[in-house]
Every structure is written in structure tokens, then in C-alpha cells.
Simulated assay, not measured.
Amino acid sequence: MEGVVLGFATIAVVIAVGALVAHLGIVDLAAQGVLARVSFFVATPALLVTTVARADVHDVLSRSLVATVVGVAVPATIYLLAARRWRRTAGERVVGALASSYVNAGNLGIPIAAYVLGDAALVAPTLLLQLLVLQPLALAVLDADVAGRRPRAREVLVGPFTNPLTVGTLVGLVLSLTGWRLPEVVAAPVELIGAMAVPGVLLAYGISLRLGPGFGGGVPRGELALTSTLKLAVQPLVAWAVAHHALGISGAALLAVVVCSSLPTAQNIFVHATRYDRATTLARDTILVTTIGAVPLIAVVVLLLGP
């Protein structure tokens, strides 16, 4: 359990620093936007290059991936169907669906997989599914929504390849598949820039918590309850049911699937929501609720399914 506590405590401290500097007047709400944009366009793409390059892409082609996919699809679909009652735009529905199913597989999943599951590579199927499939599709819809029109088939297929996050992911994928290594003169600055992605996102999140709308401000309570419940309850239950009963996965592999599905909503969703100005408060508050709730949830999962 040390990895769970350490991972969540580290995130909480950095978020608190962001809220503190905002409270003291050192930064204003505009700084949150600047940090989010720098993270989106510069730091996170650099981080994705190094993260995906180190991942074992072959782990994606496993039975665990099937359970992970279904675990993501079910809560996302439920939200998309339910969102009609709140008359959300296409971009807002995308952010809500991501908040309900897109897990913090990077800065939380990797350390938790290492400390709790004993192998950081166990988070690879979830990480790469999100980076190579979910994120590009979501960003294509968000780009089209901001432009004020329906996404065209060509945009869904080609548009993501112009997005900096997708480009960073694809560069990392090429490096992983080929075994190539970036020259040190390139790798060193890329790693240095990538290192600011996670703290940048967390600081921006803390600033928003302090200076942005109050908790639940402008978001229907039922919608926030839905996204949080889908993320904390439905996703891990569906992943467990598919993995255990449909695919016969057991032991450490089953624990890995369920723990990864129990991770809270990724802070990246807040960056996307801020970047496109879509459902920002819903993303922010869902991240807060699920991050708090994931601590006891993962502890219970480990107790029930662990060795």
C-alpha cells in the first residue's frame, strides 16, 4: 500500500502548492491558462515521447486489453447517453465521457503499478490504449466542436495527427517499435521539458481549485455524481467482470486490470477541457472526487484480489 499512499500524497502536495500560490496572490487565474497551454503544446508531448518509447507495445496485444477496452467503453457510453438530458455540446459530452473513463495511468498508474503490483509495465495496455486510440479520437471531436461543425470522417482519421499530443505519442511509438534511441543531444532537452508536464498540470489544477468556480459551480449535481460513479464504481466492476468471468483472467493479471481501472480520472482531461473551453468545471470536480475516492477503492481492491 506504500505506493498508493505515496502516489496520491505527491499529487495532493503539488496541487496544494498551486492553490497556495494562487491564494497568496503570487499568480492569478490567467496563470492557470498559461500553464495548461504550455503543458498541452510543449511539455506533455515531450513527456509522451519518452513514456511511450519506454513502454512495451507488445503488452497491448493481451487479454487484459479486452477487459480494459470494455471497462472504458461501458461508462463512456452510459455518460454519452445520459448527457442528452443536460443538453451538452459534442465537445462537452466528449470531456464528460473522458472524465467517466480516462484513468490517470501516467503519473499515478506507473508508480502504483510499480509499488503495488510489482511491475510498472502492467499499466502499459491502459496507457497505450488511451494515448493511441481514445485521446486522438477525442481531440478530433473537440477540434471540430470548437470550429462549430460536425467532425468529418477525414478529420477523425487525419486531424489527430496534427495534434501535438498525438504527434508525441506516435514519435514514442516509433521509437518503441524500432528500438531506436534519440541522440543524447536531443533526448536530454526532451526529457527536461517533459519533466515539467505533470507538475505543470497539477499546479494549474490547484490554481483553478482556488480561483475558479466553487466546487460544483455551474455543473448539475446529478451530472457530477454520474461521472464520479461511473469512474469509481462502474469502470472497475465492468473490467473485473469481463476479465474474470468472460476471459478467465486471475491472480496478479486480474489484480492489475482492476487496479488500473480503479485509478482516478487523469489530470490531462482538465488540460483538454481548459484548452478547448469545454466542461472545465465538470472535469476539474470529477478529478477531485475520483482522486479522493480512489484511495480507499484501490486499498479494497488490493485486499480482495491481492495475494
Rank of each mutant, 00 (worst) to 15 (best):
G25S: 07
I26K: 15
I26W: 15
V27Y: 00
V27K: 08
L29T: 13
L29P: 15
A31R: 08
A36Q: 09
R37K: 09
V38H: 11
S39A: 12
S39R: 10
F40Q: 06
F40D: 04
A43N: 11
A43C: 01
P45W: 07
A46K: 00
A46V: 00
L47N: 05
L47I: 09
L48M: 06
V49W: 02
T51G: 12
A53Q: 08
A53K: 09
R54T: 12
A55V: 02
V57T: 08
H58W: 15
H58D: 15
H58L: 15
V60M: 13
L61Q: 08
S62V: 01
S62K: 05
R63F: 07
S64W: 10
L65R: 07
V66D: 07
A67P: 03
A67C: 10
A67W: 04
T68L: 14
T68M: 05
V69E: 05
V70P: 12
A73I: 08
A76P: 02
A76C: 11
T77I: 14
Y79M: 13
Y79W: 15
Y79H: 15
A82V: 10
A83S: 07
R84H: 14
R87E: 13
R88K: 14
R88F: 12
A90N: 14
A90M: 12
G91Q: 06
R93P: 06
V94D: 10
A97D: 11
A97N: 06
L98C: 08
L98W: 02
A99Q: 02
S101N: 01
S101T: 03
V103P: 02
N104G: 00
N104I: 01
N104L: 02
G106Y: 09
L108V: 08
L108K: 01
G109C: 08
I110D: 06
P111H: 06
A113C: 05
Y115W: 02
Y115P: 07
V116F: 10
L117N: 07
L117D: 01
G118R: 07
D119M: 04
D119T: 03
A121C: 12
V123S: 01
A124K: 03
A124H: 03
P125E: 03
P125W: 10
T126P: 05
L127H: 00
L127F: 06
L127M: 05
L128H: 11
L128W: 03
Q130D: 09
L131S: 05
L132N: 12
L134A: 12
Q135Y: 10
Q135N: 13
